[in-house]
Amino acid sequence: MDIKLYIILAITLFTIGMIGVLVRRNAIIIFMCVELMLNAVNLLLVAFSKMHALNPSLSPTVASDAQIFVFFIMVVAAAEVSVGLAIIVMMYRNVHTVDVNFLNRLKH
């Protein structure tokens, strides 16, 4: 399998996530699109790790470094989701909406 196919797939998923962030107004869906972008990057890191696994001069330990990074990205994403959803729930409790267009008080 060529690495280009994996790059194109990851870029497509990342772009769909970016379009979602730009187009949607619901704060929860914007947050989900950020998760999708993180997953596209994870997929690309694993593909690059397996690309280096074909290099005979590198040991499997060196090739698995990228997968350790994916592991840490998942750790940070889990922490981010818990705090972010707490912020969204708090926002909903105060403003009774999750529409990002109404949440522009810092602008004024």
């Binding site: 399998m1 694993v46 397996k50 690309m51 280096h52 696994a53 330990t61 698995s64």
Partner: peptide, 21 residues
Amino acid sequence: EHLVQTKDGDAGLIKVLGMNL
């Protein structure tokens, strides 16, 4: 042209990942 290793290889196994981690 870079190829990606599919279906086999040790880089993704729990043993190698755990030792590295």
